[in-house]
Amino acid sequence: MYRHWLEFEKPVEEIEKKIEELRSYQTEGGSRTADEIAKLEKKAKNLLKEVYAKLTPSQVTQVARHPDRPYTMDYIQNMFEDFIELHGDRCFKDDPAIVGGVARLDGQPVVVMGQQKGRNTKEKVYRNFGMPHPEGYRKALRLMRLAERFNRPVFTFIDTPGAYPGIGAEERGQSEAIATNLMVMSSLKVPIITTVIGEGGSGGALAIGVADRVLMLEFSTYSVISPEGCAAILWKDGSKADLAAKALKIDAAELLKLGVIDKIVKEPVGGAHRDPQTAYKSLKTVLISQLKELNVHTREDLVELRYNKFRNMGVFSEPKRY
């Protein structure tokens, strides 16, 4: 089977190659080859587990950006039923880098949205590599307001390198679009659950991320700037991205410690892309239980709790004056 192997997965790749080779002989080999294959498969799985148990932050970044990783549409189509996509910001155009619409989760009507990356070159360009323009944020905003009007919970999925640095995006006010989303989300009177499924790139990610619950898939990242961008500015050398990734503390475990996210959702061994069905199933279970927890609160309490959650973010000291 063809897969994009990452550099640090090399030892596993070698075993899997061997397995494939054995398989091609299997018709003649009989049970001895089958035993051998089973043994190797077990070895490969253990090795994979070992490798993924101690990924460095820059390796996590690679997994988060893996070309086979499930994207927003994959999650929507496999966790929700009856998805109807809605388009356009009613101002300028439809931004394919953010998708959204209405759907059902476990039978209950909800609103879903998220940044969408493309799988092949043509689609990547069409989706602008998951980098939204102002129209994308405004479409998301329109859907959130729709959710509020009809009292439907909102599920957002974050997977973007960040906002698009382009002339049109600036001219049409991407700052204003992001800022307005932050403001409106902070007081939206329905439950909001955000999941970072891949890359959580800066303001472009946060623009759909002011939520009652912020979840992160185990091998996703969330950061104020890409490690490459940070390295270019602070180290004045883009190749120092490894150092920047470490310093920025962009992986789920660190962010949980900082109190910026609420929960880490486990991924299958070797990442969501190796076993997408399991990934969909486990995230779906978490989403359902999280929503149940939020539904306990009145809408007013929900907004109050959300406000306090973000109000308390940040670390500073305030020594008393004498």
Partner: peptide
């Protein structure tokens, strides 16, 4: 890092 993003 992320703490500054959250100030937004």
């Amino acid at each position: 890092s992320i703490l500054s993003l959250m100030q937004m």
